[in-house]
Computed example of a mutant assay.
Amino acid sequence: MQSLKDVYIHQLQDLHSANKQALKAVRNLVNAAASDNLKRALERGVSGIEDGTGKLETLIRAHDADPDGAHCKGMEGLVREARSHALKEEFDDDAVRDAVIITQYQRMAHYAIAGYGCAAAFAKQLGLPNEAQTLSGMLDAAHSGDETMSDIAEQKVNQRAAL
């Protein structure tokens, strides 16, 4: 990588890879969740990830780059953890599984938040205001999903899991 633009494009590709991996995992989390409220929030997460993946692909292609030009090892690890802890683990209580699902979702969301924030800052520095605005919107959506999960956990799931 020779320039900030090279770093920027690589970060977009990394986020594209991360989203594709997270999408599969979150779809599985939807199926594993017991709480209807959590299921709906996860389904909105799936829609948001799909939307973000499409936007990333458009941004990457605008720079004549391949959206599949990177593989995100960070999200690979987070997805592996989500499968291990939330999907393969045996639970005696659905609320406990839901608490773990929220935890794993939020870990993936925090990775996306960091990535979108960095990419938006790079786009701004590179004089790409439209791309910075798109990425900032994606960052806001990731924050919103994270806050929704915190609300679900704090208002119901964690209380039921603690019983």
Rank of each mutant, 00 (worst) to 15 (best):
E76C: 05
V100G: 03
I113N: 08
K156Q: 10
N158T: 11
E81Q: 11
A123S: 11
D93E: 08
V96N: 06
A123E: 06
A25L: 10
R97W: 12
A114V: 12
E81D: 14
A18E: 05
A142K: 15
Q2C: 08
L56P: 11
D51G: 08
K5Y: 03
K88Y: 00
L78R: 04
Q133C: 01
V46A: 10
D146A: 11
Q104F: 00
L135F: 01
L15I: 15
A141G: 12
L56S: 10
V157A: 05
A95E: 04
R80N: 06
G115F: 00
E131G: 08
D14W: 00
I60D: 07
Y111R: 05
N130M: 13
E43W: 08
Q2V: 08
R83C: 01
V26D: 05
A142C: 13
P67T: 12
C118I: 02
L29C: 09
Y116T: 13
R160A: 12
I49C: 07
A153C: 10
N37K: 14
L4G: 05
S144D: 10
T134I: 06
D94V: 15
E76G: 15
G137S: 07
V96E: 09
E154A: 13
R83S: 05
T134C: 00
T134S: 00
E131P: 07
A82G: 02
L59S: 09
H85Q: 13
G137C: 06
Q11E: 15
D93S: 08
V79K: 03
D68K: 14
G127F: 06
A65T: 12
E43F: 07
E90L: 01
N28K: 14
L128N: 03
V96T: 13
D146M: 07
S47N: 14
D14S: 07
G45M: 12
K73F: 08
Q104R: 04
H71F: 09
K88Q: 01
I113E: 11
M108Y: 07
T103Y: 05
V26T: 14
G48T: 11
L29N: 06
D146P: 06
H16I: 12
A161F: 02
L163P: 06
A132R: 09
L42H: 11
E81G: 05
R27M: 14
A33F: 02
K55G: 04
E43P: 00
Q125P: 03
C72W: 00
A82T: 03
K5M: 10
A119T: 07
G77C: 11
L23Y: 09
T53F: 05
V26H: 07
R61L: 08
V100L: 09
F122V: 02
D68Q: 15
G45K: 09
R80Q: 10
T58D: 14
V79M: 04
A109I: 09
L29F: 12
R83N: 12
Q159S: 09
A34P: 00
C118K: 01
A33M: 06
P67L: 14
R80I: 01
A25I: 02
